[in-house]
Amino acid sequence: MLRLVKRGHVSKRERILIYFLSVLAALVTSGLFVLLMGHSPWQVFQSMILGAFGSRLRFQDTMIIAVPLIITSVGIMIAFKMKFWNIGGEGQILIGALFASYFALNFSDWPRPVLLLVMLLAGFAGGALVALIPAVLKVKLQTNETIVTLMLNYIAFHLVTYLQYGPWRDPNSKGFPKIANFSANALLPKVFGLHMGWIIMLILVVAITILLRYTKIGYKIAVVGESKDTARYAGMNLNRIIISSVAVSGGICGMVGMIEAAGVNYTLTPSLTGGYGFLAIITTWLSGLNPVAIIPVSVLFAALTKGGNFIQTAFQIPQSAASVIQSIILFFVIGAEFFIQYRIVGKEKG
């Protein structure tokens, strides 16, 4: 008979090996899927990689997806560290974008650096405000934050849709329901061909890494995540730590909203989140709540998306096939966690 035993310490090498094997297994499985579609898996995977990294332009396209994914992941991670399951990234991004758009649409005559900075701060405030709702409810009423953050995603979505069809509708769009495009003043400048969101991303990753690893606040967050009782016993103000770090978590997601509005969409639309809020939950989890590991994991997922777009034109494989491959990889990597946590051993009789 077989039974499970919990592993003690797992070395970094073992961990990487397990993940590597799981990705390999996922590639074999999705290869079978590609084979069933009547294509050569080798060719399809190769052109996915080429499609994502094959030229400067394609690499830039991949990074356009990777940047918001990385920032959202880093934001969500702060909450996850405290075992606060913030799955409201989508809503926080949207409300952040909404706040930023308010300034972009109404104060476009401000000097560009001032306007952009205000927009970024407004984005942070918007995201933080949305995140405060589940945080306060959790602290005061022990409400399940998973559900509240999830619900807020849809409230945000319908709110922005309402604005798009109602009060914020662009009267000059010839009856087409859309919010007006931002003026040039409110657009993120490009640095090396890519909107400067990537610089904000690098700053945030470094800052959050330092915050979590080397500061007192980071230490407190870690303690709250490990054991609330310990934190309370050590005299920490539990509620304040939870509320403020969840607000920061949401605020960072809100900044993504500003970057996506001012750097990619040039306006506010309900679909601006691009599903990053959800995908980031997965990338954050897979990177083991490690801000540095978030970068390669997110780039991998961005490459899968971009590569998926590419094979659509190259092989006439629908875009949806790429998300199937993506989810197959997901299933395997999620499963890999099991082999890190547990060992299967033979049980002796008797």
């Binding site: 799955i87 959800f278 995908l279 939950i281 997965i282 949806s320 096939a321 790429a322 998300s323 199937v324 993506q326 989810s327 197959i328 997901l330 299933f331 999620i334």
Partner: peptide, 10 residues
Amino acid sequence: LALTIFGTGF
């Protein structure tokens, strides 16, 4: 969430 991504794509 992974299941939702799978179901939507598939």
